[in-house]
Design a protein around this nucleic acid. Sequence first.
DNA 1: AAGTGTGAATCCATTCACAGCT
DNA 2: AGCTGTGAATGGATTCACACTT
Lengths: 212, 212
Amino acid sequence: MSKGILPGRSLKRFFSYYREVLEAERVEVSLISSANLAKALGIKASQVRKDLNYLNCFGRRGVGYSVENLKAELAVVLGIGQTWNVALVGVGKLGRALLSYHPFRVSGYLITAAFDADVAIVGTEIDGVPVYHIDELASVVASKGLELCLLSVQADIAQKVATAVEAAGIEGIMNFTPVNIRLSDDTCLRTMDMVEQMNVLTFRLRKNRLKR
Amino acid sequence: MSKGILPGRSLKRFFSYYREVLEAERVEVSLISSANLAKALGIKASQVRKDLNYLNCFGRRGVGYSVENLKAELAVVLGIGQTWNVALVGVGKLGRALLSYHPFRVSGYLITAAFDADVAIVGTEIDGVPVYHIDELASVVASKGLELCLLSVQADIAQKVATAVEAAGIEGIMNFTPVNIRLSDDTCLRTMDMVEQMNVLTFRLRKNRLKR
DNA sequence: AAGTGTGAATCCATTCACAGCT
DNA sequence: AGCTGTGAATGGATTCACACTT
């Protein structure tokens, strides 16, 4: 599939390229140029070409890239089309929003079990997803084949719960808490820290204001 | 404040350092070493030192960094303590979760107005935040001094709404939709794409599995 | 003319290695 | 001995420039 090793930064751009390719397909454009893609992402065309060279999808000189071809290649590399069994741990307001977040379902992330310590909701279903007690984690992970976990508990118990989730056999954790979680090296972890993102945004904004 | 220009990557780490410093303060540790911080973030100590050199907070050789000093310096650079007037645009399930997301409030992001096109909720209050019709955007932004916007509308109208938000005078947009938004250069934009984050997570996971 | 593929150059980030302070 | 500060070295990612194809 891919020619060499994929630079980390390119990977993230690939998802954006993929979205643009879907959009091109929707409006029935069959060719797309590196300049088109570059403009859409606000980057240089040369970078787009470098990125796309990691794929087997060759562009045609003087013409551009075939949308159909590009879509297929990106889908393979990005693992699009695959589905994943996802657990949600921590059924607060954010957790409930994640449970019914449609883009997850569309993208193959199927939340099939939720966990919480609150006995008032354990045993119920929310948006069609059964809620288990957090103590049942290991057994449900095994019986349902859960692979990933969305962690949306309170910050103060996040590390403890993450460790338990890892011990239960989950392979990847998406951490929604504003906490630096530490796990063993063979569990994948990503942190979606919304506060941090806001901080980066306002940091840029403050610099922007100084320019006037 | 800062010595030179702050490398983009360092900025993100600064937020993690800040969290560790708060934690050190909580457990009443008054000195912290680059090795301590490095371990907490899973990076090299030399990098921590390079990062912290952008601050005026000098560590003491043979000793480490003063937690109090470091906290104060990081707070200045990161703009912690400042408060922001935030609009929420798109009051769906995710929007409601964001409205009551406590870490935002604690970090100085005060959501003081929400906007939606659904007349059933316009005029009501949700979690103490008044909901306005999307057409009132420009006037409410002006009257309330709204500076930032959390964009949590449906993907298909995201670009259109973002353009309107920008025109209404908002300076920074946090985009929660899985769409590549394009804005003029002087509006700050960040995208919190949860699907993309999941994709990166599973990309890594797939590579991890191949190693066994 | 338009647009890719790619070596070379540049820019930025990380790591090393060690002098210097406490 | 322990730990920072920092020049030098390395490594990675981006941009340039231009040959080459349609």
